[in-house]
Design a protein around this nucleic acid. Structure first.
Lengths: 232, 232
DNA sequence: CGCCCTTCTTGAACGTGTTCAACTACCGAC
DNA sequence: GTCGGTAGTTGAACACGTTCAAGAAGGGCG
């Protein structure tokens, strides 16, 4: 009798009990169509029809077509976490862990390259709740930053104490940069993004190591201060 | 009789002769309404009505509402060039020139901060002709890169020969980064963007100077090679 | 069973960006 | 001056995202 064992759903806006099934149905249908036809080519009417509900019903669960994208964002984060686990279990050096996690991130989104392009268009708008910097995206974002914290803590790298505190967020920012490049990457199989990762990780690795050097301490401090100032 | 002194228009698609007036009228009306009401709140119908033409006429000159934004992009570049001139005439040191030109760039777009946000949303889409990396934006982009070339050539800075070649494009990329931050900058008067410029320019300045050091030569080379690989 | 309240569902209607077949204005050629 | 062709112009029509008043479904309580 494990069928309806009390609504264990987290307190999402409407999804308290009955509608949860419909919600998932609509979400899954949308994700499928997005992948099949692309974002712009998938109409809300098509999603509704394919899911067997009325158009307005989709809007009961998702504020807009854009909000459906956020589901993709959240889902990708979860998959990224799972795909990164083997790397975190296997690798010990900072560079290998970072490279592995970045590659895992790209792996996860690769099947949706075309669709993801349009996704990041919407995400780039600062006023949009879809921006990776927005409050509404804080869930996936913090989970993602936590992942990069694990990259660091599980590694053998010795890092300047002050930098250590900020580094996870900076690595996440670098990851966003990789994704931004990936979105624009027209090379077959997005090979260039892979080259970017493999080229940039050693640089980051070396930079992090250098940050402990006494001569560079002032610069490190200067950079960290600047970043602190610029954060919201 | 300087009224119609032979069509000196550059070979833009339709704008060979008669329509040039209408084209400019529509463009100026659109720019004004964008600034007054914002991008989303300005309908094509409103633009047409305010300009005293039919809706379809606007589409004769501009392929889409998005294409009107490209006019803003081009116009901003011209204004940026003009605003940067005094700085280039006055300053000699690389840092001062770079900071001045970056500040000038922000100055130019400041009146359109709200509208520009939506602008960059569209610009972020890779498939869009509006992307600053796209072929259709190559005009303003190259003019902008040329501006940063002047920042370098007019300065007293001594730069590694290999880096010198790539630096203008890299500075332009940094400028894009500044704009990206500016778009998301919610601080009053976008003060933080100013702090970003003032904080980052000394770092770039120092980095450029260091690039000539023999010990750092391999790293410089490595970075430049990576960038060359990643360019399309 | 009947009642009420919340949750969920519906589809017509609105405003938008965009298209297009039809029409008009202009200009060179004969 | 009339003819033909290009450039320019029109506005109704289309498909889309989104809204909303209306209703249906479910469930707790007398």
């Amino acid at each position: 009798m494990t069928e309806q064992p009390a609504p264990t759903t987290t307190a999402g806006d409407p999804a308290t009990a009955r509608g949860e099934q419909t919600r998932q149905l609509i979400r899954d249908t949308a994700m499928r169509l997005f992948r099949e036809r692309g974002y712009a080519q998938t109409t809300m009417r098509a999603i509704a029809q394919e899911a067997g509900v009325a158009v307005g019903n989709a809007y009961y669960y998702f504020g807009s077509k854009d909000h459906l994208i956020q589901e993709f964002y959240a889902q990708s984060q979860v998959e990224h976490r799972a795909a990164a686990q083997p790397v975190l279990d296997r690798e010990e050096s900072f560079g290998a862990r970072l490279a592995g996690v970045l590659h895992a991130g790209v792996d996860v989104v690769t099947p949706s390259h075309e669709f993801a392009a349009t996704f990041f268009k919407t995400a780039a708008e600062p006023t949009s709740p879809l921006s990776p910097f927005s409050a509404e995206s804080s869930g996936p974002r913090e989970a993602s930053i936590e992942l990069f914290a694990e990259v660091l803590t599980g590694s053998t790298a010795k890092v300047d104490a002050e930098l250590r505190q900020q580094l996870p967020e900076l690595l996440w920012l670098a990851y966003m940069g990789v994704i931004l490049y990936w979105v624009h990457d027209r090379s077959p199989g997005q090979v260039k993004t892979r080259q970017l990762i493999d080229g940039v990780v050693p640089l980051i690795d070396r930079l992090v190591a250098l940050s402990r050097l006494r001569v560079l301490r002032p610069v490190t401090r200067q950079v960290l201060d600047l970043i602190r100032t610029l954060r919201h």
